[in-house]
């Protein structure tokens, strides 16, 4: 069984983790074309080579990211999500809820 290093809990059997899909940037939901939006929702890049993926350590519910080579299945590094997401994300349409 493979080992994966959780940035919070250290090296663990991969059975302690849940895979969370490929990391990619969500296009602007108001301005992107229907095609681009469909690409985002339904298609995966499935790159042969270096990919960034979401992983969750189940016992601590800790989400983080991993860089992995899909050809060799080698995990290059794992890191906390705040390395990418450094500030609050705003969605800026006016609030007109009733």
């Amino acid at each position: 069984m493979k080992l994966l290093t959780c940035p919070l809990n250290g090296k663990r059997n991969i059975s302690e983790f849940t895979y969370g899909g490929e990391y990619h940037v969500m296009p602007d939901h108001r301005t992107s074309s229907a095609r681009d939006w469909a690409e985002h929702v339904f298609f995966h890049d499935n790159v042969a080579g270096l990919v960034t993926e979401w992983w969750c350590h189940s016992a601590s519910s800790f989400w983080f990211l991993a860089e992995r080579n899909t050809i060799t299945d080698e995990v290059i590094r794992t890191f906390k999500a705040d390395e990418i997401y450094q500030q609050r994300v705003e969605f800026t349409a006016p609030e007109t809820e009733v």
């Binding site: 849940t18 969370g20 519910s61 989400w63 999500a81 450094q86 994300v89």
Partner: peptide, 15 residues
Amino acid sequence: VYQNMLKWNAQWRLN
């Protein structure tokens, strides 16, 4: 649902 909530807020970073 719980895992999804945490994953989204890892991105949104809401208080």
